[in-house]
Design a protein around this nucleic acid. Sequence first.
DNA 1: CAAGTATATGAATCCCGCT
DNA 2: GAGCGGGATTCATATACTT
Lengths: 242, 242
Amino acid sequence: MPYTLHRGDALRVLADLPDGSVDALVTDPPYNSGGRTSAERTTRTARSKYTQEKAGLPDFDGDNKDQRSYGRWMFEILQESYRLTREGGTAIVFIDWRQLPTMTDSFQLAGWTWRGIAAWHKPASRPQRGRLKQSCEFLVWGSKGPIDASRNPLYLPGLYIGSQPRGTARKHITQKPLDVMRELVTLCPPKGTVLDPFAGSGTTGVAALMEGRSFVGVEAKEEYADIAQARLREAEQYDLAA
Amino acid sequence: MPYTLHRGDALRVLADLPDGSVDALVTDPPYNSGGRTSAERTTRTARSKYTQEKAGLPDFDGDNKDQRSYGRWMFEILQESYRLTREGGTAIVFIDWRQLPTMTDSFQLAGWTWRGIAAWHKPASRPQRGRLKQSCEFLVWGSKGPIDASRNPLYLPGLYIGSQPRGTARKHITQKPLDVMRELVTLCPPKGTVLDPFAGSGTTGVAALMEGRSFVGVEAKEEYADIAQARLREAEQYDLAA
DNA sequence: CAAGTATATGAATCCCGCT
DNA sequence: GAGCGGGATTCATATACTT
């Protein structure tokens, strides 16, 4: 299946894409959380907030907004994505618990019909004494107007289980498991186009291509765009029939 | 372990209970959701919204508020519960996806420190064509000030899996699985007291007693209070050592 | 080759001390 | 006194490695 990877700021790139050109938005934006104080959230790098590894993976930008600006930013991204999506198209957005209420606000303000929250469970997440583990991230999902179930007669689960890739398979600080993304992109009808304004290392795109969907991605960070480009090129070869 | 079951309206009953008299709030309030329109939510009975069974279980009240009033009502319930909870105590509140943002607002407005969202997955929930299944309900949890982990050195999961009781074990329209509740009440330190202002058929209380915690419950509906009373009496006999 | 053992790590959280 | 950053804590899980 064909794919396009744009390099640059998500809002700017989306502004130049035509109305109704995609069938589904599937994305994992920066969460802008981590840390108790505003300063901890806004001054530390994503890497220092979310990982303990000393070496290796590049940092990512766009993770230094306070909650108000984050809501506004997500609103604009989701509004542009809404414009790009055809009637009856769908959206799935990852978010953590702290920003979930902000996200559902932005999601609806942008025009999307909010239809539910699914959970992604990470079995290998860190336990904490005297507390409930933060083992779930959440999927806010919905549609642009009514869902046309005849276009996509699939029944998707409400709970996804999978761990982040490790070792050499790990390309991004906050990478999602490929198996989970392959299931999620099937909310987009077969041969439809999946949009991801925060492509990162490109897992959403790889999943889309493997499931027979086209892909349009945007990534601002050069290092990650290079990685995504390479992974997408490889996934393009993947034989659906195999 | 000892227990008390009050009969009457939650807000009124809570107002008469003393400060700092419980260690944890664990409750499953009416969700005031179900139905797409405000009219559907506020005019239908809880039973017609949440069950497809023809016969049997009594209806429950308090499920006919619009979103704004629901938020206000939960705020008042959570505020009173906060007053009743000792410093360092914890709270767990069930909620569905539609009211989750309203709940996290009310939770924090009432003074609680919001510390996370866990998920309860219902494997038997109904799949929907072209959609993600609504198989999860959510647990908003937090504490009154800092958590004293030394009082309760337990590591609790972030995902709970269990189906609603069926057949004769089913006593309430929206009953929670006993196994799930038994795990959750252990967020309350051993021999502490668990509060549930919406006791329903009393599952929280039964779980608390079985796990060696005391219980204070409130239930407005006479039929359910009778059922809860009977179940609590039986659970009191339960031998912890067994 | 299956089963058991060792090791590394996590979109975390908190304490503590320095600025 | 508030802001800021370093470092310890902790165990289920995944993976590598050994028997």
